[in-house]
Amino acid sequence: MSDIATYNFAYLDEQTKRMIRRAILKGIAIPGYQVPFASREMPMPYGWGTGGVQVTASIIGPDDVLKVIDQGADDTTNAVSIRAFFRKVADVETTTDTTKATIIQTRHRIPEQPLVDGQTLVYQVPIPEPLRFLEPRETETRKMHALEEYGLMHVKLYEDIARNGHIATTYAYPVKVEGRYVMDPSPTPKFDNPKMHMSAALQLFGAGREQRIYAIPPYTKVVSLDFEDHPFEVQTFDRPCALCGAEQVYLDEVILDDRGGRMFVCSDTDFCEKRREAGHVGELGMAMEDVR
């Protein structure tokens, strides 16, 4: 035997997986409620997606196909590392294709391609408590959730309007799940909030440092908080993607030089690549035949 140390399938030991699996089932049964769990040390620092990794490790099986995205991109450090991690410890197939994946672990985006029944979206969550910046005491926020006392959140959104004329919260925009729990959708842009509503995919959220797991089952009502006279709105962009010409998608700004040059491109790299393969070309893009 040349192997000095081998790991259990998917890295975590079986007792840890049982503990996390119990938390996931409770999370699904109580949509939007943050279930405490005994988060483990992972071979990566807190803040790198240890919560999402522990959730993925507890649900993944040999037949799964894993996709990992970081801010929509498949090719950033965090996404590449986590994909490599699961190839090594679970020997699973990985992909960048949203339609081929059975499990998609994400940091701060929901793919543009609508998800389907049978897919699971695993979010990496830094701060799971939507009320934390308004009330630092866990004992108090827990009581507020228990009593369904969310007035403070509406005051916060109101103060946004009073100061800025509109709700200035653009990411981690609070949602109410199935008419009961106010939930932090993790720092996704509010552009993605409508995709959570009645999604066909199961959505699981893991916060490693804060030791919380929560979930939204498929076909569950997810409503962004707002006011009658200030309804919830998503970001709009005044130009299409510079590479693929897509509209109605979330764009990243890319600085091109030190003289103010910039371009706006799809944050979802898989979506952008597929459109370019299909022949769509933006104003700064090149046809795929010319690239090859």
Binding site: N8, F9, A10, E14, K17, R18, R21, I24, L25, I28, A29, S58, I59, I60, G61, P62, L202, A215, P217, P218
Partner: peptide, 19 residues
């Protein structure tokens, strides 16, 4: 095979609980 068996049963229960 405890890891594989537990995973298979869990996915069935998770899917059943979610749907």
């Amino acid at each position: 095979n405890p890891p594989m068996a537990a995973q298979a049963v869990f996915r069935a229960v998770m899917t059943a609980m979610a749907r």
